[in-house]
Structure formats: C-alpha cells, structure tokens
Simulated scan of single mutants.
Amino acid sequence: MSTEPLTPERLAEIRELIGTRPAATDRLIHGLAESVRDVREHQHPAASEDIYCGNLRGWMGERMGPVLVRLLAAEAEVARLRDVMATRAGVAAQYAVRTKGGSVFALGINGAAAEAFLAEHGRHLPEPELVSRPLTPAGPWAPVERGDA
C-alpha cells in the first residue's frame, strides 16, 4: 500500500467520480468499523453462500461516497499543513525510511528521526533505506547519502 499523497490529477478525477455529497459523519465511520469487525468475526458458512457478509459488504459499499469525500478533505488538510510547516520552519525536505516493497515509515522534517527509526527498527525491515523528498510540492522519494541527514 502506498503512502504517497494523491496527485492533483487523481484528486480531481475522484471528485468528479463521486460528485457532490456531504462528508461521512463520525457515526457513519464508527458504523463502518463495526461492520468490518462483524464481517471478520462472524461464523462463515463452509459450503454455502455467506449472505450475512454479502449484505454487510453491500451496506458498506453504498456508504463509501461520503467516506471518500472525508478522505479528500483530509488529503487537502495534509497538503495545507505540509505547506505551512515548510514555510514556517524553512524546511525544504521530508525524510523517511523506505523498504524494498515501497512502504514508507518515520516521516519527519529532519533526518535525525528517520535515522533513529532506521537504527532501532531497520533490522526488521526488508532492505530499508533512508530517503528524502522536497516538501513543496511533494516530490518523489530519493535515497539519502548517510552524511546528508
């Protein structure tokens, strides 16, 4: 699963697909979480169709539009805060640890936090490397020479 921000083009495409609707309420998010738990924990029939799970998944699917609206709002807020942070702190880059599979951990505005994460957890990760990217606009991750952080 990628943790990269959605591109402006992808955000616009998603907005067009879901149309205008209100964002998911806390109550809806909680109800969806309960449904995920219920699908996971109930007794699944061995040989027949699982009508219970089918109904719950259908119920959840019908409610994804408002969840996507809320996700887009959260993505916009993350972008806004990234810009504010870069402007106020004079920070030009964000550092992280990336694994062979592309997962990114220990995001921070200085290399020290990512270096500490790598030192403590690196042995448990598949081929970890220290990476950085510009904050504004968020650029691609690039390997960091160990003295640069």
Rank of each mutant, 00 (worst) to 15 (best):
L56V: 10
V97M: 00
G147Q: 13
P22E: 14
A74F: 02
L11F: 00
T20R: 12
P22L: 03
M64F: 14
A46W: 07
V104W: 05
P66E: 04
E4Q: 12
P22H: 02
Y95D: 02
I51G: 05
E129Y: 05
L11H: 02
L118D: 00
H30I: 05
L28G: 00
I109D: 08
G90K: 00
V131A: 07
W59Y: 15
G122P: 02
L107D: 01
V104Q: 04
A46R: 14
T99D: 15
D38A: 15
D148Y: 01
F105L: 10
E129C: 10
E13P: 00
R37H: 06
V144G: 04
V69M: 02
R98Q: 15
R98M: 11
E129H: 01
R57D: 06
L81W: 07
D38G: 02
L125E: 14
I109C: 08
N110V: 01
E75T: 04
V36A: 13
G147W: 14
E129M: 07
A89V: 10
L107H: 12
L6G: 12
A46L: 15
I29N: 03
H44A: 13
R27N: 07
T3R: 05
A119W: 07
T7L: 13
G111T: 10
E120D: 12
T7W: 04
R15Q: 07
R146Y: 05
N55W: 13
E75G: 01
E34A: 04
K100I: 08
M60I: 10
A113R: 14
R82S: 06
A93Q: 13
H121P: 03
T7K: 03
E34K: 09
T7R: 09
R146Q: 11
V144M: 08
E115M: 01
A119C: 02
A24Y: 01
T99M: 11
V78G: 13
A114R: 07
R63N: 03
R27F: 05
R40H: 09
V69D: 09
P143G: 03
V36C: 11
I18V: 08
G122L: 03
R70D: 06
E41S: 00
M64A: 14
V97A: 01
Y95V: 13
L71T: 11
A106F: 06
T87M: 06
H124Q: 14
V69S: 07
S35V: 03
D38T: 12
